Amino acid sequence: MTDCQLYLISPLDVSGEFPQRLERALDAGPRLVTAFQFRVKGIDQHDAVRLAEPLQAICAARDVAFIVNDDISLAKRLRADGVHLGQGDGDPKDAREQLGRETQIGVTCHASKHLAMEAGEAGADYVAFGAFFDSTTKASDYRPDPDILDWWSTLFEIPCVAIGGITPENCRPLVEAGADFLAVSGAVWNGDEVSAIEAFAEQIRPA
Rank of each mutant, 00 (worst) to 15 (best):
residue 39 R to C: 05
residue 89 D to S: 06
residue 80 A to M: 09
residue 71 D to A: 02
residue 85 L to S: 11
residue 93 K to S: 15
residue 69 N to S: 13
residue 50 R to A: 12
residue 71 D to C: 05
residue 57 A to G: 01
residue 46 H to Q: 13
residue 41 K to G: 01
residue 86 G to P: 08
residue 69 N to K: 10
residue 59 C to W: 03
residue 64 V to R: 00
residue 55 L to R: 07
residue 48 A to G: 13
residue 42 G to K: 06
residue 57 A to E: 13
residue 42 G to H: 07
residue 43 I to L: 12
residue 56 Q to V: 02
residue 62 R to A: 01
residue 44 D to P: 07
residue 74 L to M: 08
residue 51 L to P: 06
residue 60 A to S: 12
residue 40 V to F: 00
residue 41 K to T: 02
residue 74 L to V: 06
residue 67 I to G: 14
residue 91 D to N: 12
residue 49 V to S: 04
residue 54 P to R: 08
residue 81 D to W: 03
residue 61 A to P: 00
residue 80 A to E: 05
residue 64 V to C: 01
residue 44 D to Y: 02
residue 62 R to W: 01
residue 69 N to R: 08
residue 83 V to F: 11
residue 68 V to R: 03
residue 61 A to D: 01
residue 88 G to L: 13
residue 81 D to S: 15
residue 48 A to L: 08
residue 51 L to V: 08
residue 44 D to V: 05
residue 41 K to D: 03
residue 44 D to C: 09
residue 56 Q to D: 08
residue 78 L to R: 00
residue 53 E to F: 00
residue 88 G to V: 10
residue 57 A to P: 03
residue 40 V to W: 00
residue 55 L to Q: 10
residue 92 P to W: 15
residue 65 A to L: 14
residue 66 F to H: 06
residue 61 A to R: 03
residue 48 A to W: 06
residue 73 S to F: 10
residue 69 N to P: 06
residue 38 F to D: 05
residue 38 F to C: 06
residue 80 A to V: 04
residue 54 P to G: 07
residue 38 F to E: 04
residue 81 D to P: 14
residue 40 V to E: 01
residue 70 D to E: 14
residue 87 Q to G: 10
residue 65 A to F: 04
residue 43 I to E: 03
residue 81 D to M: 06
residue 62 R to N: 00
residue 38 F to L: 11
residue 70 D to Y: 05
residue 56 Q to T: 03
residue 88 G to A: 14
residue 47 D to A: 14
residue 51 L to S: 08
residue 43 I to C: 02
residue 64 V to F: 02
residue 46 H to W: 04
residue 51 L to D: 07
residue 90 G to Q: 09
residue 75 A to M: 10
residue 51 L to E: 13
residue 91 D to W: 11
residue 65 A to E: 09
residue 54 P to Q: 08
residue 69 N to F: 07
residue 44 D to N: 13
residue 55 L to F: 03
residue 63 D to E: 04
residue 55 L to D: 12
residue 65 A to R: 15
residue 77 R to N: 06
residue 92 P to E: 15
residue 40 V to A: 00
residue 52 A to Q: 08
residue 86 G to K: 12
residue 50 R to Y: 10
residue 59 C to H: 03
residue 88 G to F: 13
residue 60 A to K: 13
residue 82 G to M: 09
residue 56 Q to N: 07
residue 67 I to Q: 09
residue 78 L to N: 00
residue 72 I to L: 08
residue 78 L to Q: 01
residue 72 I to N: 10
residue 45 Q to W: 01
residue 91 D to P: 15
residue 41 K to P: 07
residue 39 R to T: 04
residue 65 A to I: 05
residue 76 K to R: 11
residue 46 H to D: 11
residue 57 A to C: 04
residue 93 K to M: 14
residue 44 D to Q: 07
residue 58 I to Y: 01
residue 40 V to Y: 00
residue 87 Q to A: 13
residue 89 D to P: 02
residue 85 L to Q: 15
residue 59 C to T: 02
residue 79 R to A: 14
residue 70 D to K: 03
residue 86 G to I: 12
residue 92 P to K: 15
